[in-house]
Amino acid sequence: KVVDVPRGKAYAVDISRVKEAMDEKTKLIFIASPNNPTGNVTTEGDIVELVKAGIVVVVDEAYYEFSGVTVAHLVPQYENLIVLRSFSKWAGLAGLRIGYGIFPQLIAEQLLKIKQPYNINLAAQIAVKESLADLEYLRGTVRAIISERERLFQKLEELRFLKPFPSQANFVFCAVVDGDAEGIHRGLEKRGIFVRYFDTPLLRNSLRISVGKPEHTDALVEALREIGGKRSG
């Protein structure tokens, strides 16, 4: 059984509510940091507080390379802390399902006992090998995305009908404060620009915009101004 604990203000993990949700049946706590789709990180202090509760804590750091914030260095200190990473985002290998985990030795030994006999496929192995051989290029791409993310955030802040949230991932999350997220999504789609929109209770009337090249940012902002009309200011 999975128990969802709603995030608090500005989509931060509500540590007190997580603790309240824990009971004798709780086996694992799973946290995404940076979070998808909001892009915010959970502080080291908050994660340590949960780890000290004695439950296994898994921190999904799929977007770590865009934030530089990690708790991987704490794994040797705590036998109940696991960090997961991916090659899907920073290395562009989405679809090959390749990643890795940083585990305490005891947990790693137990996982090896129950793992399936099949490892990753040959295409994924070759792609990872080539990615690791070209780290400087990939790191340069990450730096470019981070730089453009900040410019995108600033441009979105200028649009009065959107409220962008600071992000440490490769996207920017926006609440639509005047208008309809689905309508904006459709308007962008007609112009050949694709973003994600959400209408779930906790993410109602919001958008997630991936970071692209500078020309992509410019085209997006121009389209948003057209769609927003006078509300763009």
Rank of each mutant, 00 (worst) to 15 (best):
K1E: 11
V3S: 08
D4G: 09
P6L: 15
P6V: 15
A10L: 12
Y11I: 09
I15S: 05
R17Q: 07
K19N: 04
K25I: 00
I31T: 10
G39C: 05
T42L: 05
V48N: 11
E49C: 05
E49K: 13
D60T: 06
A62P: 05
V69M: 15
V71D: 07
P76W: 12
Q77I: 03
Q77F: 14
Q77S: 14
Y78S: 08
E79N: 10
L81H: 12
L84S: 03
G95I: 07
I98A: 14
G101I: 03
G101R: 04
A108V: 07
L111N: 14
I114M: 10
Q116F: 02
L122G: 00
L122P: 02
A123Y: 06
Q125P: 00
I126Q: 11
K129W: 15
E130Y: 04
E136A: 15
G140D: 07
R143F: 09
R149T: 07
L152S: 08
F153M: 05
L162P: 02
K163F: 07
A169M: 05
F173N: 08
A175L: 12
L188K: 07
G192V: 02
R196E: 13
Y197V: 08
Y197Q: 01
D199C: 02
T200I: 02
R208P: 01
S210I: 00
K213W: 12
E215T: 13
L220D: 00
V221C: 05
E222F: 06
